[in-house]
Amino acid sequence: MRQVPYKIVNNGEMALTIIFDCPISLDLCQRILFLQKKLRRSIRQYLLQSIPAYQSLTLCLNENSLDITAFITQQIKQIMSQMDHKYSFLGKAYIPKTIEIPVCYDAEFATDMRTVSEHCKLSSDEIIQLHSQTTYQVYMLGFLPGFLYLGGLDKQIHCPRKAVPAFEVMAGSVGIGGEQTGIYPVNSPGGWQIIGRTPVRLFSPSSNKPFIANPLDNVRFVVIDKQQFDKLSGQES
């Protein structure tokens, strides 16, 4: 199996970031998640937070010294070489689920549909079709509570973010930001072009299953109308 070059850089004296020098891919995502899983055991006495991103893994520590950094570096090296030599990590990997997320693309919610339509030179029906026919890959969670980083947005509906972010975007809003699509899990400021809304909660802090999806799961958007949206909203609350 091919080797993945990486370097470890300081992120202040209380964190380390491992940067992988290769393009974004599902394979890299699996390696990062495997490394995270292993490190959560092997360096648990030092680990406060571990944050995977498309091409990096950040480790926030509760304590650090040159000796501890050397120990962690050694652990990373060991796990990485284990991955380079064996396929075994893929065999034990998580079995992905496919999650269907209902989205209402009605004008009431799709406040930026016109912008996307003008930029992409497509009708709103074409945009909805392209957006809802894809199966998206969950690369990771992060940024906001329960936010899903999704890969696979059709090139025809890539659309730049707003020059000035909106002051508040409602939870459940489905947007396009550059080459990505995503759902705002909580009310927050945001710069993405909003094309719909889901009545489903991405994040339920008091539930025993607070997050709707895990990394490596698949997501599909299912078109619903306003009536179905209202019905599902009622069930959620």
Binding site: N11, G12, A15, Q49, S50, I51, A53, Q55, L57, T58
Partner: peptide
């Protein structure tokens, strides 16, 4: 740059 995890005080 590549997006990556933010540590406190970044």
């Amino acid at each position: 740059i590549l997006s990556s995890g933010l540590a406190q005080g970044s």
